[in-house]
Design a binder for these strands. Structure first.
Lengths: 189, 189
DNA sequence: CTTGCCTATGCAACGAGTTGCATAGAAGGA
DNA sequence: TCCTTCTATGCAACTCGTTGCATAGGCAAG
């Protein structure tokens, strides 16, 4: 119900093509909302028909032309009205949790490798988030003169990123808990 | 890709009807995997056709008869093979994060009420989880004689619940961070 | 020179999930 | 008495998201 809105936000932060949006969804925006390029193209077309976005053909040399999308007035209005209506607090879809409870009816040892894999993946995500934070928010380069006006967009992007960091840290701690529990249940004789 | 597996785990823990499963999905299992009754009935029918579950008609007095499902050998095998194959580390779908970044292009003040609502909902979830932990795992009633064999299923259910608790605590702390950030951006003059 | 990757856009088919509606008897409160 | 809630099962329509495939030029490595 909200891919449109994620795209609107991303295009407001920076206009771009479907392809560029797809890459952003692999990075910043995608940290808390994923989308494949097929889906993005389909939704962009619908948004164009609804007058939410404007398109501009951008010829390029050495690579295919692209269509640069930007947010139209109708799109801005749609985003605004969505921001004013309540959304449900999210609920988790956690395959791994199902597997862990399922392990009671199988050999818990088979899960150890899987949990370690997830731990690795989350550890890499955390490293990426922290690098992004250092680069964009807390690094020396990122610091601006004290007189500069506080930038609401920057502040809000940062607090969302802090959420991602907190999530990954919590998940890593939990996965360690899971591993300790599994090792207790499977004493390697 | 895994509602079937969540149902199999739930039925292995305790056989039951579609209606009972739907209620479990509102409680324990549903803490990390949600499903509506319509979906559950549809999937149960498919699982029955595939021979993953057995059905038994249970006549009741004073209320409609029910169909009690239990896991068949094929279902157990399907669960086992799923447990042995890797799943992708989950990625978040967080409407609120999109809204927060979107607030940069609208009035951030409108979000404060929404964030407080989410805070309230997560606070209630945490209270429910903690009550469940006290009741089933750490309470005096729950304690069993030291000589009792360690129950793998119980241990695994508990570590999953600890994950839910950690998630809610982390989310509450983050929402406080978000609220502080929003109040900083909207100094109520 | 061929193989594979990167940019760039898109269709078609399928599967998963949501929303709305329907049925039906029993129990309990206004 | 009527209205709502609870138990219990299910269909139909729709939207959302994934997977597989297709096209096509440029660029770099082997």
């Amino acid at each position: 119900m909200a891919i449109e809105h994620a795209i609107l936000v991303s295009l407001l932060e920076q206009p771009g093509s479907g392809y560029e949006l797809a890459r952003r969804f692999e990075r910043s925006i995608g940290y808390f909302w994923t989308a494949s390029h097929q889906q993005i193209y389909r939704v962009l077309k619908r948004m164009e028909n609804d007058g939410w976005v404007d398109v501009r053909d951008v010829p390029q040399h050495g690579r295919p032309d692209k269509k640069e999308y930007s947010v139209a007035d109708l799109g801005r209005a749609a985003l605004s009205s969505w921001l004013h209506e309540p959304v449900e607090p999210e609920s988790l879809r956690h395959d791994l949790a199902v597997k862990i409870r399922g392990a009671a009816f199988d050999d818990p040892a088979t899960l150890i490798g899987e949990v370690e894999r997830h731990r690795q993946a989350h550890s890499e995500r955390l490293a990426r988030y922290l690098a992004g934070e250092e680069r964009d928010f807390t690094g020396a380069e990122a610091r601006r003169p004290a007189a500069a006006p506080p930038d609401a967009g920057r502040e809000l992007q940062h607090v969302v990123l802090r959420g991602g960091i907190a999530y990954e840290r919590m998940t890593l701690a939990w996965l360690d808990d899971v591993l300790a529990t599994l090792h207790r249940l499977v004493p390697e004789r």
